[in-house]
Amino acid sequence: MPYLIILDASHNELSDFFGFQPPKNLKEVNFSHNQMSVMTHLSAYSSLSKLNLDYNCFSEIGGLLHCASLTHLSLAHNKISCISGLDNLPIKDLCLRGNQIEKIENVETLRTLQVLDLSLNRITSLSGLQNLHLLGSINLERNLISEIKEATHIHDLCLLRELNLQRNPVQVAALHLHPEHIT
């Protein structure tokens, strides 16, 4: 399979990344809805641009440091508690929805990041986003952000077009301040 560029092995019971020697020109890999818990070292796959690992059992991010073409990474609905292992990757779209993340950290080197989904986590502050100047969309729905002053961390993000803070304690606080907006 030397010309294989897209691999979809989703919705199986896989516990390991590759049970064979995959071609080095793989561009898109989907291993969502499996039973994987350890991230294999993927540095040999320099062409890999899109990786979907949603609905697995990962507790940490690793093995991606030399994936020089990786622009889309999704690890939604895993058991990740800390953002790490992404230093200087060219990621434009990062989805960590539905994990156990409590704070936004170790993302300052993701200088090409445009879309960030951290919804359904345990985040209390927007600190950590202030230097991501290409961000256009941030989804923080259903987190634990309780104060509107957290927006000062993203005040200078000129390209930001979408910020979702729905179902956070800050929304309830705003309704108490302005009860006329309750419908």
Score class of each variant (00 low, 15 high):
Cys67Lys: 06
His66Pro: 15
Gly128Val: 00
Asp156Gly: 05
Leu4Phe: 07
Leu132Glu: 04
Ser69Ile: 06
Ile101Gly: 00
His155Gly: 01
Pro23His: 10
Ser46Gln: 14
Glu147Ala: 06
Tyr45His: 06
Arg161Trp: 12
Leu118Arg: 01
Leu73Arg: 03
Ser10Thr: 01
Leu65Ser: 12
Val38Trp: 10
Leu94Cys: 04
Asp93Phe: 14
Glu60His: 03
Ser146Glu: 13
Asn164Val: 10
Pro23Lys: 09
Cys158Tyr: 14
Leu165Ile: 02
Asn139Pro: 13
Pro179His: 08
Lys103Glu: 03
Glu141Thr: 12
Leu70Lys: 04
Val107Met: 08
Asn88Ala: 14
Cys95Gln: 15
Leu70Cys: 08
Ser127Arg: 06
Ser146Gly: 10
Glu180Lys: 14
Leu160Lys: 05
Ala174Ile: 09
Ala44His: 15
Arg122His: 07
Ile182Gln: 14
Cys67Pro: 10
Arg111Gln: 12
Ser49Tyr: 11
Leu53Thr: 02
Gly19Ser: 15
Asn12Gly: 02
Arg161Lys: 13
Ser49Ala: 09
Ser46Ala: 13
Asp54Arg: 03
Tyr3Ile: 12
Gly62Trp: 01
Gln100Tyr: 08
Ile5Cys: 13
Tyr55Ile: 02
Glu147Trp: 11
Phe58Asp: 04
Arg97Gly: 07
Asp16Asn: 10
Ser119Glu: 03
Leu110Glu: 11
Ala68Asn: 14
Cys82His: 11
Ser137Tyr: 13
Leu126Asn: 05
His153Arg: 00
Phe17Ser: 05
Lys149Asp: 11
Ala68Val: 12
Asn56Asp: 02
Ile6Asn: 13
Leu160Gly: 07
Glu13Cys: 04
Asn30Leu: 02
Arg167Pro: 13
Ala68Asp: 13
Lys79Arg: 11
Phe31Trp: 09
Glu150Tyr: 01
Tyr3Gly: 13
His133Phe: 09
Leu64Asp: 08
Thr71Leu: 11
Thr71His: 12
His33Arg: 05
Asp93Met: 10
Asn168Trp: 06
Asp8Ser: 03
Asp93Gly: 09
Leu7Asp: 06
Leu129Gly: 00
Gln114Ile: 10
Gln171Lys: 15
Leu26Arg: 06
Ala9Arg: 15
Ser43Cys: 15
Gly136His: 12
Glu180Arg: 15
Ser47Asn: 13
Leu120Val: 02
Ser46Thr: 14
Ile123Trp: 04
Ile80Val: 01
Leu48Ser: 06
Gly136Cys: 07
Pro22Gly: 02
Lys103Gln: 07
